[in-house]
Design a protein around this nucleic acid. Structure first.
Length: 111
DNA sequence: ATCCTGACCCAAG
DNA sequence: GCTTGGGCCAGGA
């Protein structure tokens, strides 16, 4: 299950599949998405994928470790509004991860 | 090849 | 709580 030498397109596709599985009202961290996709150390690549995908993916459901919103300026507000609209609760400046963090079931991502 | 950047992460202080 | 430094990785200049 270590696929470091696979083409980037497959890696990105795996990441996209994972993001699409996060249900409304739930969130997952960049690190969790990367790990669930099969690439534990690729949390930074998740960012690139989300940027490129734009609104084709539910990008608002991916947050930083501890539930922090990592976007800047207007986009940070946009993400918060979208999440609150889905019913995600916040504790201060970050998402209240307890109970709102999506638990990936790994076996669903096997090819 | 090198340098820089980014919606990162985490252990320290 | 917040900031820092070091560790990660791919992509673009």
């Amino acid at each position: 299950m270590l696929l470091r030498a696979r083409p980037s397109e497959e890696r990105d596709a795996a990441i996209r599949r994972v993001v699409r599985r996060i249900p409304r009202g739930k969130v997952a961290t960049y690190g969790q998405v990367a790990a669930a996709a099969g690439y534990p150390l690729y949390h930074r690549q998740v960012v690139q994928v989300l940027r490129k995908a734009g609104d084709a993916l539910p990008w608002q459901r991916v947050v930083g470790a501890g539930g922090a919103i990592r976007l800047k300026r207007e986009m940070a507000l946009e993400q918060r509004l979208r999440l609150e609209a889905e019913g995600v609760r916040f504790r201060g400046s970050r998402v209240d991860l307890a109970g709102q963090q999506h638990a990936f079931r790994m076996w669903e991502f096997e090819d």
